[in-house]
Amino acid sequence: MKKRIMGLALGVITAAAFGMTVNADELIKVGIINNDPNESGYRTANVKDLEQAFSEENGFEAQTFYSLDNGEQIDAAKKFIQDGVDYLLLSAAETTGWDSVLQDAQTEGIDVILFDRTIDADESLYVASVVSDMAQEGQTAVDWLAGQGLDEYNIIHIQGVMGSAAQVGRTGALDEKVAAEDTWNIVTQQTAEWNAEKAQQIVQSVIDSGEEFNVIYAENDDMAKGAVAALDAKGISHGVGKDVIVMGFDCNKWALEELLAGNWNYDGQCNPFQSEYLLDIINKLEAGEELEEKTIIMDEKGFDAETITEEDVETYGIGGGDTAEAETEVETTAAE
């Protein structure tokens, strides 16, 4: 009896060993570390996109960990390294503190790929990074605004959480332009910390002061929505051909619908659909190819209310699952 069990165990072990070395169809093990999907609609879309891409049907065995806490993320990374994943995909909560754990990964022969956010670590510690160029997003938006040819730009600038990459990038381009042009003025520049209701208060405050403005440059959709609520309460018209130009970022589906309806003027994309880039990298590495670039910057668009189509809204809009299909997808995400 004992012998039989031993034999069975031995058989399993050999089979496992064979499986690891010989079987090329074996699933690729990836460890995904991301921020909490509740953080924003953007993050929810990002998490969902990756989970769908790294499924078993696509030949992956994915372990996931989501947290806004850098320390917890590092612990999870250590665990994934111990579990012997083939690839570690990382969107770090903070830019620092990753050196030693990434060195561990390197000694274990695990390829680290950064996505969405970069970190302050030596480039040799990761094989590639897939990022948004936030400064470029800001530049695209500012160029679009300049193209509107207003006689005078009086801008209410609503910023995100100070110091975040999105805030720094999207603020930078505008600040530069305002400094360079005489006709561009900042009426107020305040942080609403991505919070719609704070944005509402800031715009309300400007309205109460009686100052003139004709542009709202909000660094995300939520804040643009808050700003618009304040405009609506005061009876100030906004949108295509109206008194105030409304600009947002992130391309939430509901925001693009506002564009389609002509209530807003512009929305800048921050691409959460990063899995195709990641899959491409992994496929190349699996095939033994060299990567051409270490840092891969994603294509990102800016949508104009006058040219946006319904197809754009469907293709690029984030979240807002009215359909049953979207509902079930989300449920599985929540269950995990």
Binding site: N38, E39, S40, E193, W194, N195, A196, D222, K225, G226
Partner: peptide, 13 residues
């Protein structure tokens, strides 16, 4: 009710 929507991470932060 203010904006007829919610954002879990920032509402009433």
């Amino acid at each position: 009710s203010r904006l007829s929507t919610i954002n879990y991470s920032v509402i009433a932060k």
